[in-house]
Amino acid sequence: MFFHIVLERNMQLHPRHFGRNLRENLVSKLMKDVEGTCSGRHGFVVAITGIENIGKGLIRDGTGFVTFPVKYQCVVFRPFKGEILEAVVTMVNKMGFFAEAGPVQIFVSNHLIPDDMEFQSGDVPNYTTSDGSVKIQKDSEVRLKIIGTRVDATEIFCIGTIKDDFLGVINDPSAA
């Protein structure tokens, strides 16, 4: 699920960035530092949408660096148990398959793949129905439901299922 929230971060800026472009430098550094990171608490920071407030800079002892407290608005993505996501398959093996929904990695184990889909090894390992009408392989797009998340301080990993109504392949690259 996406959220638009306000976060705060202390930014350290090298003195060479001071001057009339200080603010721009600060913001671009913030974007570089923050976008794409993941915190267990808020999820993945997708994009910074605005700066709320930049506090007074504080010169650090012994160095020329200055610390600015920056409040910024950003879009974060946090997966939840029970959430339905659309993801791209990245790897298929005997144990199941891995998929990505943006920055989130999801593993679907083979017992959460419908029973009528069989694993086919080979050049392009895949799961296929007996009549061959549905095929899950690398780069397939699937709709899945998250049934569990593992949230670490800097990492979120999910496991999902496609064994439910309206879940499964939504776009088959081999058919296109």
Binding site: N93, G96, P125, I159
Partner: peptide, 15 residues
């Protein structure tokens, strides 16, 4: 299954 990412081996398709 939550450990899957750490367990996957790139030599074969097993954990």
């Amino acid at each position: 299954a939550l450990d899957a990412l750490r367990l996957i081996s790139f030599e074969d398709e097993y954990f």
